[in-house]
Design a protein around this nucleic acid. Sequence first.
DNA 1: AAGAGCAGCAACCGCATGAAT
DNA 2: TATTCATGCGGTTGCTGCTCT
Length: 317
Amino acid sequence: MGRSPCCEKEHTNKGAWTKEEDERLINYIKLHGEGCWRSLPKAAGLLRCGKSCRLRWINYLRPDLKRGNFTEEEDELIIKLHSLLGNKWSLIAARLPGRTDNEIKNYWNTHIKRKLYSRGIDPQTHRPLNSAAAATATTTTTTASAALSNCWSSSNNNKNNKGSINVSKIETHNSLAQFVQAPECIGSMKICNSNIKVRTDSSAEDSNSSSGVTTEEVCPEINLELSIGLSYHQPQVSSINFIKQKQSNHHQQQHHHDQQQQPQQQNLAYVFSEAPTKAVCFCCSLGLRSNHTCSCRVMETSLTADSFSRYYRSLNS
DNA sequence: AAGAGCAGCAACCGCATGAAT
DNA sequence: TATTCATGCGGTTGCTGCTCT
């Protein structure tokens, strides 16, 4: 059953690519084109896994890459796209010809974050920094990107969320990917809070349950069972249908599809978790620092010198 | 001049999804 | 239908060069 492995991992190189490896990869792709990464290393005479070859090609060797500094226009576009899409680097990169998701991600973390801080803007929420604290009140107002960013962050990065409780699903009307790929959206892309439905869920496999209480809250006032101040809003909102969140497996996806006809709400749990930068876990936000579910404690105990340095930098940037 | 700390970036890791078997 | 794996993505890490003391 199944397929054969993509490569023999014990016979692959790791680390920085040599010039010779680059040349081999370039030559091979020039001759045979992209794709079939599985068989590429062997065919090209490279002791690398296909995944590594793909990454090297996409992020560094591709001829259409635009090397060099980002322009001011690119900066602003990235900021704008990030405010709309959150950390969806591949989608952002798709809007910047010649730039890769990895490059943009790095650039965001090293330059733009600082730039936004210097403007007094929280890079994660795109709200003024001094209003972020005030907004952690009882009701939650959020933009689509913020909700998505947080949800994706919390659901996709479990290791940063040990002991945390997650928003498991966001339900929306249309595909974000389709929307973002529509060229006419750039520059006029606005997100309609009223179209974003946050379905809360304590049990993924229970998502098709007909026994759940059905309340589908509509932004901007997301009525969480746990009232948490997920803070921010972007007032300019028009109508856009948004995202169908990735489901964790095919089964859930089917349920999800079904539920678009019949949305259900289940228990909500939510955590602020954007580790490692400025992570504020729910426990801490409530002043329950000693709680065993506190993700900050996990962070504290697992920090290496280097990661602590990085974390510290991010706080001071 | 030397060491420590910082910044930037390339590459890796792990996960989600969907396709192949 | 279940299993296995390729691919793509986002988060994280490690290395290198630069700056500061």
